[in-house]
Design a protein around this nucleic acid. Structure first.
Lengths: 160, 160
DNA sequence: TTCATTGCAAATCGTTTGCATGAGG
DNA sequence: CCTCATGCAAACGATTTGCAATGAA
């Protein structure tokens, strides 16, 4: 992980960007929450613990910068908030799929299956894929046991 | 298509909702643009031709209502705008995938492949899928011939 | 009359921007 | 000094909401 921070610092300075305390704090928060999918607001609140004086705008600017450098990944589950993620590594970049529970909001990654599908799409449509976002929305196994959830999602026929 | 309008009217009235002129105009716009992926604003402008007095809020409310009734499909390509689509038909509901060109913004549907993947996900994760959103972002065959596009997306190694 | 529905304007929410200040080379 | 980066507050764009007016059952 120090590894990663060092690499990021190099990447920044190679393009004349500085690893300021605010940026470092932001990266650290992302490193500590690799499994989560934090919104800018989430990141902001977490960074405030490390650097209380930071402004929300700086967090947005930092996340935007890191996105341009392809260090973080910007995503969007349709709930009106953009979420950010450290990228795993350099090239297997465009594999990033999720199970989103419509009840509890839990997000689980499923970063495999699908290489074949990508290949077919590229060939069939002569389309150069730069990024793939596959999101399954549904009910996770935990929520499935909740009677309220069952009533809401499983009882009614969807089209009367 | 009259077919479809009638069915929608039935669906509405079965739940004590009325097919007001505004709602009808909105549905008609959606029917006339089944291939597009219109934003609320787009729909609003198109509906204004048919019913100039309509308000944007009503369009939003109508689209929300139609979404709840599973008549339209709400989606999101990460550009900060929600887009809406008439659903094709009743049950093969959750198959709705897209190729989005990062250059010209063209959206092409690829509503097949993937049934197997869905099945695997359901079983592997004990996850009940209610909706799937698969988006490939990349460069379409048309844009690929543009030298500016080539320079921007295909020349530079992504990580120096 | 009653209740859903509407148009309008104001409010809200996430995000971006302008600007004056501050820190580092 | 010069530039980049910051914090703050204002601006912004998409969407939602409050409310009084409308209109069909």
């Amino acid at each position: 992980m120090e590894d990663k921070l060092t690499r990021i610092k190099q990447l920044l300075s190679s393009q004349r960007f500085k690893l300021t305390p605010q940026r470092q704090a932001t990266v650290q928060v992302l490193l500590e929450h690799q499994e989560d999918h934090l919104s800018a607001e989430d990141v902001y609140l977490l960074v405030k613990d490390k650097a209380p004086e930071i402004g929300l705008a700086t967090v947005y600017r930092t996340l935007e910068l890191l996105t341009e450098l392809e260090i973080v990944h910007k995503m969007n589950f349709g709930d009106g908030v953009t979420r950010y993620d450290l990228r795993r590594d350099e090239d297997a970049s465009h594999i990033h799929h999720h199970l989103v529970c419509m009840n509890c909001g839990a997000v689980q990654e499923i970063d495999y299956l699908l290489q074949d599908v990508e290949k077919i799409v590229e060939e069939t449509f002569d389309f150069s894929i730069m990024d793939v976002r596959l999101t399954f929305q549904g009910i996770c196994s935990k929520c499935k046991t909740d009677p309220v959830v069952q009533e809401k999602y499983f009882k009614h026929p969807h089209h009367l």
